[in-house]
């Protein structure tokens, strides 16, 4: 059971000109087994929502709360949030030169479980997870994300999602920059993860395209730092047809 509850979340981004108010009271509850699509125009604060929940130092939570299974995440460090079961698939995964994918994954798994994974099964598990994302097993000896194409980086994120199997996952524009084949591969991975039935997923996206492959439980329209409309798949279809203009106009 994994329940992610965001209550009246206000967040400032720290800029050189001083703090800038980005999130203006976000409320959202994701129950176990649910997939919530967060859709909004560029600059609406979608990524800020993802990064601030994960604890990125550039974002300051000024008020509100985020809990995962009752644990207050905002009081935890970045890695404590990870160990509490939160996972962020990043829009721009970071290159870490000289650190192999295998070493990175083993270190993460050890940190999450509190003990090293069994050597014999772990290597096979890693190869299988990479294989399901159509990443050759040679990727495990490559430096993390270094020299990966945009699509390979995204598939690597979802391989981690399946392998580390967190309680709750935030997918930040995982679909952007993917061709249709890669989009299917990534969506299949997310669907396998959600098929466990008790995981919480926040799917942040700019486009409706990925919702053809991942069935959302709810769709939320995100404009100017808050959720301005809720609905089901039909809301995504409406956005596809009409765009965000009417919501942006209302928010002004």
């Amino acid at each position: 059971m994994s329940k992610l509850v965001i209550s009246d979340l206000h967040v400032d981004v720290l800029t050189e000109e001083g703090p800038k108010h980005i999130l203006k009271g976000v409320n959202l509850t994701i129950n176990p087994g649910e997939v919530h699509a967060i859709m909004g125009p560029n600059g609406s604060g979608k990524s800020t929502l993802a990064y601030s929940i994960a604890g990125h130092p550039k974002y300051e939570i000024t008020s509100g709360s985020v809990t995962l299974d009752g644990i207050e995440l905002t009081e935890l460090t970045v890695d404590e949030r990870g160990r509490a079961g939160l996972f962020l698939a990043m829009q721009y995964p970071v290159e870490v030169p000289g650190v192999s994918v295998a070493n990175f994954l083993r270190t993460a798994k050890t940190a999450l479980d509190g003990q090293a994974p069994k050597v014999r099964t772990w290597v096979k598990d890693v190869e299988a997870a990479l294989g399901r994302m159509q990443l050759d097993k040679s990727f495990s000896s490559r430096s993390v994300n270094e020299g990966f194409s945009g699509g390979e980086k995204k598939r690597h994120e979802i391989a981690q999602l399946e392998l580390l199997n967190p309680k709750a996952a935030i997918l930040d524009e995982t679909d952007s920059g993917l061709d249709i084949d890669a989009l299917r591969v990534v969506s299949d991975g997310v669907n396998r993860y959600t098929a466990q039935g008790d995981r919480a997923v926040m799917l942040i996206t700019h486009y409706t395209r990925i919702l053809r492959y991942i069935e959302p439980t709810f769709v939320h329209v995100f404009v100017d730092g808050r959720i301005v409309a809720d609905g089901g798949r039909e809301l995504a279809d409406k956005l596809e047809a009409e765009g965000y203009e009417s919501y942006v106009a209302l928010a002004k």
């Binding site: 990870g82 962020l88 870490v96 430096s143």
Partner: peptide
């Protein structure tokens, strides 16, 4: 941030980065 977001403690993340 990337390493720590996967649950890796800060000191361990620094070790990985410097070794890398």
């Amino acid at each position: 941030f990337y390493l720590r977001a996967r649950g890796i403690p800060e000191a361990e993340a620094r070790r990985l980065v410097v070794h890398g």
